[in-house]
Design a protein around this nucleic acid. Structure first.
Lengths: 191, 191
DNA sequence: AGTTTATGTCAGTCATATTGACTTGTTTCT
DNA sequence: AGAAACAAGTCAATATGACTGACATAAACT
């Protein structure tokens, strides 16, 4: 669907990558020349990207942690706490505080699992879904604007690039996570 | 050189962007469909990207704040504190702590400005330059590996994409900042 | 019955950021 | 020369988001 999985363009050895300042890594593992520009672009781009959402979030007294929780709960209705923890890569205690706030302020609701009653399955309330959508919207606008300025094939390549930047071990999990539209209740695979 | 500035591919209205799930924003400003996959890829990719450096940094008892300071000082030898602050977008107090540590531990040294003696121009020491280089190296490896898996033209498009993601007002500043190789002493423009 | 799992909670800590106010030099402007 | 602006540093107080380790409870699995 989103074809982020394609791999290994033939890529004649020593050919491609003409425009990059950085060549292949030599024996000592330290590349001869370093892509300073790409690094700095990543830094500035990501910072401005997250700033859009941050602005909206502060109106509600929330931070980035709330955003992430809200996002993944909205995207995975009925997700259990454990799975959310493994997606976010944080500890129970860190999640606890922000999740409690989101529940107390009626952005997220918890329902006991119908099969396993130990679980507190998480769902966004209408209010929570609305905020999640608005957060997506402000960030989408920046994304759309950026892609609107460059070649049409860019979005495919950027997707492939981002996917390849993820740790190889977690790529299959991420692929499963993002390549689904909506499933009301999430199966409990290790995220 | 790195041609991130090119703009406005002709892009016949309504044509391009075939593979994106997201269409243009309608009147209410909220896009009809939202690029969840791209958002999540950005999150996971950036997280893993920064994790490489974090690992190295903790060996020295440093955090991400130290990384950023070290990086921009190494890249802009002789930079003054004010310019560093405006690049990083943080306050004097936040910088103060990490900068002091970097100076005390001999990763960065300060020299009074030869013309304006109010300034404390910043330089990395050999030790500091070495760490900065190693940090670049670990992150470069991930970057190279990612680009090695996808089409050769990807790096150009990714650069363009990242550049367009930056706030329009700061793009010229960023372009100046990244498009220079090495100038021993930095002119003091508003970053 | 005993173990594992899902969740929550307590207490303490750390890193990074914030704001506002104030000081000390130094330079620049009138 | 004197005032204003600027570069840098510092103080105190605060907030956020993360961490660790330990412990508690209920439910489920074997």
């Amino acid at each position: 669907m989103t074809d982020i999985n394609l791999k290994k363009q033939p890529a004649a050895p020593g050919s491609g990558e003409v425009d990059r300042r950085t060549a292949d890594a030599p024996e000592d593992g330290i590349p001869r020349d370093l892509p300073y520009d790409m690094m700095e672009l990543l830094f500035f781009a990501y910072r401005d990207f997250t700033a859009d959402a941050d602005e909206l979030l502060t109106e509600f007294g929330f931070g980035r942690a709330h955003h992430r929780v809200l996002h993944f709960v909205d995207r995975n209705p009925g997700i259990m706490v454990t799975d959310l923890l493994s997606i976010l890569g944080i500890t129970k205690q860190s999640l606890g505080r922000v999740l409690k706030q989101l529940v107390d302020l009626d952005f997220i609701e918890q329902q006991p699992g119908p099969i396993d009653r130990r679980q507190r399955l998480l769902y966004t309330t209408p209010k929570g879904h609305d905020l999640a959508t608005r957060l997506m919207a402000v960030q989408t606008i920046r994304l759309e604007r950026a892609f609107g300025e460059i070649a049409p094939e860019a979005s495919t390549l950027v997707r492939q690039f981002l996917f390849q930047m993820i740790n190889a071990e977690t790529r299959p999990d991420v692929a499963r996570l993002i390549n689904k539209k909506y499933r009301p209740v999430m199966p409990a695979g290790r995220f």
